[in-house]
Simulated assay, not measured.
Amino acid sequence: MSEISSQTVEDPDLARAREGDDDAFTRLVEPLRRELHAHCYRMLGSVHDADDALQDALVRAWRGLARFEGRGSVRSWLYTVTTRTCLDLVESRRRRALPVDLGPSSDRAVLDNAPLNDVAWLGPYPDAGLTGGADARYEQREAVELAFVAACQHLPGNQRAALLLFDVLGFSAAEIAETMATSTASVNSALQRARKIVAEKVPARTQQRALREIDDTRVREIVTGYAGALERGDAGALVALLTEDVTWSMPPLRHWYRGIEAVMDFAVEIPLTRCPSWRHLSTSANGQPAVACYLGEHAEAPHLPWSINVLTLRDGRIADVTSFVGAEHFPAFGLPDSLP
């Protein structure tokens, strides 16, 4: 992740902030806001929860600034406050899930697939939220990949925090122990258990590595080909883009599909034939290519936000589609409210 110069006790803004200067506090925090928000997302699996957590954490930091003794950097101290805030939310809220966590895949298209609103669903994360936006470094993008964030949601709060602080952010076990008010031995134990669980759920080859092995032109072809196939209702073009073991899920819908036959049965039955008219915009989410889907009643009608489709690629094809259904996902991506 990007190196940001640590503020020290001698920093004029820190001194002014400790005396109650709101503007000085804002100047201290602003360079760190994006990376703190991404940390909240990794902890909580939701942009909206990350918004709430970061806001609460910064209020706590402002109110507790007088207690900051300056032994470490402001960055480290803010991560401590933010992590503790997230841990409080982890304790009070259900873990975020994907349809694959709820049961086996379906062999055929399910037409009465009603949304499950009593499940806390994992949400997509806009790459613009990373430090550096679209130019964010490899390590940052890897740490918000869908498979990794989904795996983290299976960890208890203390293991989740230890893993993210150590493996993603580079804090020492001793620093993490201080953050979590525990012992270094407990942190090392939590790390060991967390790494085992995550290794069982995350592919050995990350999306960042897979994308680096695919020519950028091919990635663009896949994205535009996927969008074009949906807009034209072209099943042949779509199937040509998919791996044999492709999966497709649509939170907040329970049912999901695995394998080319099941996925194409779903695609032909629903998005390719039953949805009147599609329009699409390319975007990026969780360090992966994504497509924003807009649905209209007919080709000339306004097309309204429908889903953010995050694509997982392997060997030049689409291995997984996660369609996050809901207009509420679009504002965080800076996407328009409708397409003509």
Results as ranks from 00 to 15, higher is better:
N117D: 14
E139A: 15
L116C: 12
D127Q: 06
W121S: 08
N117T: 11
P124V: 00
G132Y: 07
R108D: 15
L122A: 03
G132M: 04
D112C: 10
Q140I: 02
G129D: 10
V110T: 12
P126A: 03
E142M: 08
P115E: 00
V110M: 02
D112T: 09
A134G: 13
R141T: 15
R137M: 11
T131I: 07
A136P: 08
R141L: 13
L122F: 09
G123D: 06
R108C: 13
Q140L: 11
L130P: 13
L122Q: 06
V119T: 07
A120G: 12
A120R: 12
R141P: 10
E142P: 00
G129I: 01
R141V: 14
A128G: 13
A120E: 15
L130D: 06
W121V: 04
G133F: 02
A109I: 08
Y125E: 05
A134N: 09
P126L: 02
A120H: 04
Y125R: 02
R141N: 03
D127T: 09
N113D: 15
V119M: 09
A134W: 10
W121P: 10
G129F: 12
A134Y: 12
R137P: 06
P124L: 01
Y125L: 04
G133M: 02
P115M: 00
Y138K: 08
R141C: 12
Y125N: 06
T131L: 13
T131H: 05
N113L: 01
E139K: 04
G129T: 00
Y125A: 04
D118T: 11
A109Y: 02
T131M: 10
D112W: 03
A134P: 09
R141S: 15
V110C: 09
R141Y: 09
V110A: 06
Q140V: 07
A120S: 14
V119N: 04
G133V: 05
D135N: 12
E139L: 10
T131W: 03
L130C: 09
T131S: 15
G123H: 04
Q140G: 11
Y125Q: 03
N117M: 07
Y125V: 07
L116V: 12
N113K: 01
Y125S: 08
Y125H: 11
L116T: 06
E142C: 09
R108N: 15
L111A: 14
L111N: 11
A128F: 05
Y125G: 08
Y138F: 14
A109P: 05
Y138Q: 05
W121N: 03
A136Y: 07
R141E: 12
A134H: 10
L130Y: 05
P115S: 01
G129M: 04
D112H: 08
N117L: 12
R141H: 06
L111S: 12
N113S: 14
T131G: 11
V110K: 07
P115F: 01
L130I: 01
Y125C: 09
P124F: 01
L116F: 02
G133Q: 04
Q140A: 15
G132N: 05
E142T: 05
L116I: 00
L130H: 09
P126K: 00
R141K: 14
G123L: 02
L116D: 13
G133D: 08
N113C: 12
E139V: 08
W121F: 05
L111H: 11
A136R: 00
D118C: 06
G133K: 01
N117A: 04
R141I: 03
G133R: 00
Q140E: 15
G123C: 00
G123I: 03
R137E: 14
Y138I: 05
A120P: 10
Y138M: 10
A134K: 06
